[in-house]
Amino acid sequence: MLENKVALITGGSRGIGRAIAERFARDGAIVGIVWSRNEAAARDTVERIVRDGGRAFALHTDLGTPGDAGHLWAAFDEAAGDLAPGGGLDILVHNAAKGSFTRLEGLAEDEFDRVFATSVKAPFFVTKLALPRLRDGGRIINISSIAATVASPELIAYAAAKGALDAFTHTLAQQLGPRRITVNAVSPGVTLTDNNAHLLTNEPAAAQATARVALGRLGEPEDIADIVAFLASDQGRWITGQVIDASGGTQL
């Protein structure tokens, strides 16, 4: 389905990002994995993909810092080598984000700035520099969150950032339509990744979160990866400018 397509996934070493990387590789894509903090996890993800017969490479960029977009694409060209001749790209997935669990009354400006630098500014300018290398008919997929539409006061900065990413999705889809490049966002609910590891041991908290989900369980990274893979494939060619709820029907 994605045979020989070149894909890049920010935050691709763990959780949802890793699941997307592994699914893309199984579908035949050449996968670039951007990591910021955990080199071991990125290397492990690449090794798992290669061991299963796929093609992947890892590159480091500290997203959310000045000049991050330029650094990312320079690192991409160095790391990809012959896997991405000429630096061309078919699929760009913005998965990296910065969380925040502070209500407005306790929110400091520097925390707000870090959230927006990683979750909004980086996707904007990484995409800006990607446009000359993104092939016509390509895909941009942003990983959003239902926090943008389901009120949670302790996530106010994170929710605002994801709302901005949704707006970016709509507008960029209009701009890139003439090039047949689709732009969509996927909006997970509570998903069992490292960030929600406490739910594996805290039964009351897990039960409370599950009770909000129409399908009766919490999400797995593979649930999100399958939706992203559909949007990246030719079957998703007629969907653009959409924010797709991937929460199992949370708080319907």
Rank of each mutant, 00 (worst) to 15 (best):
236 G>H: 13
186 V>F: 11
250 T>C: 07
243 V>R: 10
163 G>S: 11
89 L>H: 11
99 G>N: 13
84 A>V: 10
205 A>C: 00
48 R>I: 01
118 T>W: 11
240 T>L: 05
184 N>K: 03
46 V>I: 10
9 I>H: 02
145 S>D: 00
159 A>R: 03
213 V>G: 03
21 A>L: 08
21 A>M: 07
237 R>S: 11
147 A>L: 00
12 G>M: 06
143 I>C: 03
62 D>F: 09
191 T>Q: 02
206 A>S: 06
37 R>H: 15
11 G>Y: 07
140 I>Y: 08
170 H>N: 04
219 G>E: 00
229 A>M: 01
82 D>V: 11
127 T>D: 03
175 Q>W: 02
25 A>G: 11
106 G>T: 04
183 V>D: 01
45 T>P: 15
31 V>Q: 01
89 L>D: 06
225 A>Q: 04
4 N>A: 01
54 G>S: 07
30 I>L: 07
25 A>C: 08
219 G>N: 01
112 F>W: 15
114 R>A: 15
34 V>W: 01
247 S>R: 06
108 A>K: 12
245 D>N: 14
49 I>N: 09
170 H>F: 09
6 V>H: 08
202 N>S: 11
5 K>I: 01
59 L>G: 12
156 I>W: 07
86 G>F: 02
87 G>N: 10
224 I>K: 03
68 D>F: 12
222 E>Y: 02
139 R>G: 02
185 A>C: 10
162 K>F: 03
113 D>G: 05
177 G>P: 05
225 A>N: 05
160 A>G: 10
21 A>F: 06
171 T>C: 00
244 I>W: 13
134 L>W: 03
219 G>S: 03
68 D>S: 15
146 I>Y: 03
166 D>W: 04
224 I>T: 06
221 P>V: 06
87 G>Q: 04
217 R>A: 02
57 F>S: 10
88 G>D: 11
43 R>H: 13
116 F>H: 15
131 L>P: 03
23 R>Y: 00
245 D>Y: 13
185 A>R: 07
76 F>G: 11
78 E>L: 13
107 L>K: 06
125 F>H: 04
22 E>P: 07
47 E>K: 14
40 A>Y: 07
110 D>T: 15
38 N>S: 15
159 A>P: 01
153 P>V: 08
187 S>A: 15
249 G>C: 08
229 A>W: 02
181 I>F: 05
195 N>M: 13
164 A>L: 06
187 S>K: 13
175 Q>V: 10
220 E>S: 09
186 V>C: 09
222 E>I: 03
217 R>V: 00
48 R>P: 00
95 N>R: 04
119 S>L: 10
11 G>V: 09
107 L>E: 05
108 A>P: 02
220 E>K: 14
233 S>A: 06
221 P>D: 04
150 V>D: 05
176 L>A: 05
105 E>F: 12
151 A>M: 10
110 D>Q: 14
5 K>Q: 13
3 E>H: 14
192 L>Y: 02
168 F>M: 09
129 L>Q: 10
146 I>A: 08
249 G>W: 08
193 T>A: 05
35 W>P: 15
35 W>T: 08
201 T>A: 15
166 D>F: 07
58 A>F: 06
51 R>T: 15
